[in-house]
Write a protein that binds this DNA or RNA. Sequence first.
DNA 1: ATAATAAATGCAATTAAATTGCAATTATTA
DNA 2: TAATAATTGCAATTTAATTGCATTTATTAT
Lengths: 148, 148
Amino acid sequence: MIKKIGQCNSLQVLKDAKLSRTSQRVAVLDMLINAERPLTVIQIFRNINFHQKIHKVTIYRILSSFVAKDIARGIPTDEGINYYEMACRHNPVHAHFYCKSCKKMFCLDPATSSRAIELFADLNGFKIEALSLNITGVCSNCNKGGSL
Amino acid sequence: MIKKIGQCNSLQVLKDAKLSRTSQRVAVLDMLINAERPLTVIQIFRNINFHQKIHKVTIYRILSSFVAKDIARGIPTDEGINYYEMACRHNPVHAHFYCKSCKKMFCLDPATSSRAIELFADLNGFKIEALSLNITGVCSNCNKGGSL
DNA sequence: ATAATAAATGCAATTAAATTGCAATTATTA
DNA sequence: TAATAATTGCAATTTAATTGCATTTATTAT
């Protein structure tokens, strides 16, 4: 597991991506930057709306634009829910573990992940746009009777 | 890419899994056994209903029971669609490539896949129930102007 | 074989994530 | 500061997947 630390400046990230600085985009981006693990639209929606009102559709659109601009990455689960994480240089592509019990998405060791991913680097003629190595199961905490 | 050959007997597979032999289950299973690549519920529905009438919900339920009995594996895409393939010993767990253009799900080399998967075998206390290594992009055929 | 029981299927309605069109609002620019 | 462009909010829609229930089909015990 890797511990994520917020090292990005949301205003600078938006400026670099040529995305206008709206309070909604800043709020979503700050939440991603400071998140310990990937978040869902609903999680972002609930947390932000505790302080500030943002429409759920706006969060979908903001996250889509972040993915398009390579600011964020989407991590789909086999339960049909998408999680999002920062895609900055401090957070290289890596595999994830999704706990069916507590619904948390854990980030796995980037070193091991990158070795796994390198194995598929050459895909003769195939253009790789996204790579997701996703493991589903029950995390150690839930396994011990945490929340099952 | 691996070439799948139908080596299973649908009636025997159902018997071994203690699932009753209905015409619907046999039809779905035969289609999976003879498929060249993973299929979606809709693809199975359209192909079967060309000859025989089966309700779409039944296919969802049959595939769920197949996955529960380890007869089939589900492969989710980042577009929210599930593909299904046989999980027999002739078809070990492997990675997949999903072409956003032609919507085909390709099976990747099981040898390379298994080496990648082994890297995550020990996940200290985490109980692995499913592992999906999924690559999305554009396949070589579509890349050459096939269907973009 | 046949009746009784259990399981599977078909159908309608629903759920939930995600998307779309459009009007209103907010940000950027000239 | 006005004009233009981009973004947001809202309502409605889309689509994969699920659920409850009546009907049909398969399995079993007699």
